[in-house]
């Protein structure tokens, strides 16, 4: 939703610069997966604050409910049981938009201003400008945006940009009973994470680490993982996410190549006509000439 109290860093499909002079602090949400108990208070808070009501689903044999992100569920808890170091581990990850510094959704979107990246790092969809093409779905390396069946527009977590704009933390952060979700400047969140990771390492989680993947320029939603070397254990979290090469080619190299090709065809025609001139056959004179030559 349009909120001009936050400075805009980038707009989708807008090649010219946005106002850049104010120095805004980058924010981040830190999700400590090792502290999360899977209570889903954050899911409820999200649905409350954003006035979303996902359909009451059915039990599919695990705790995941709703089973997937949707236009009415911008965050879902994903539960996975794995055996690591000879012990059963229950890995619970709060899934949702990662608010990438280099967002594939924004890169792919063809509609000016349908996707906005604020200077503080939040990536927000402005549905009033969305045309429902679904390019953002193809652009996102985390499979996050969902097109609503109700209005054919794309929705996802806004990191509660409306709350952040007035100095509040996102609703999920506010609600989390264990303090597994924290919010602040990205710098501070990295420090908090570092302390927790040192602690985890002392307790035997040698590969504990921060998930802030460089392939997408870092993210403004970060995870503390016990097994940072095995991100896919956490219900398919990509180890090294990056904007797909196909998308980069489509939104990158193809544009100048296409421009050159089309311009070359047009310019060739124009200069050919004004130099060689039209190719006429139908005046009788030319025909007579041809006959005498033969």
């Amino acid at each position: 939703m349009a909120l001009q109290s936050l400075d805009i860093l980038r707009r989708s499909a807008t090649p010219t610069a946005t106002p850049q002079v104010r120095n805004t602090v980058e924010v981040a949400k830190l999700i400590d997966v090792t502290t999360c108990i899977g209570c889903k208070a954050c899911q409820v808070a999200c649905s409350e604050w954003n006035e979303l009501r996902a359909e009451v689903g059915t039990n599919i044999g695990v705790y995941d409910n709703p089973v997937d992100l949707s236009d009415q569920a911008w965050t879902v808890m994903r539960f996975n049981e794995v055996e690591e170091n000879g012990k059963l581990e229950w890995l619970i990850r709060k899934d949702g938009c990662m608010h990438c510094a280099d967002p594939g959704c924004l890169k792919a979107c063809p509609s000016p201003g349908a996707i906005i990246q604020y200077k503080n790092g939040i990536v927000d969809f402005h549905e009033e400008n969305c045309i429902g093409c679904g390019y953002c779905v193809s652009g996102c390396p985390f499979n996050v945006p969902r097109i609503s069946k109700q209005d054919n527009k794309a929705y996802k977590c806004s990191l509660c940009s409306d709350r952040v704009a007035v100095g509040q933390e996102p609703a999920c952060v506010k609600t989390c009973p264990t303090g597994a979700i924290q919010f602040g400047s990205k710098e501070d969140m990295k420090e908090v994470a570092a302390t927790r990771i040192t602690d985890l390492k002392k307790r035997g989680y040698d590969n504990a680490g921060l998930y802030d993947p460089a392939g997408v320029g870092g993210t403004h939603v970060m995870y503390v993982l016990h097994h940072a070397d095995k991100a896919p254990l956490y219900s398919g979290l990509p180890q090294d996410p990056a904007i797909s090469a196909t998308v980069s080619l489509w939104k990158g190299l193809l544009k100048p190549v296409a421009t050159l090709g089309i311009a070359a065809a047009g310019l060739f025609g124009f200069f050919h006509y004004i130099t060689v001139g039209p190719n006429r056959a139908d005046d009788e004179h030319a025909e007579d000439e041809k006959e005498t030559v033969k």
Partner: peptide, 27 residues
């Protein structure tokens, strides 16, 4: 999406040539 955009642009360039040829060859 990559194939669609690429083939569309190839076709558009081709059609420019097609239209030009028709304009150039009078009649």
């Amino acid at each position: 999406l990559l194939v669609h955009a690429s083939s569309a642009l190839a076709l558009i360039a081709g059609i420019i040539v097609h239209v030009y040829a028709a304009l150039w060859v009078k009649g």
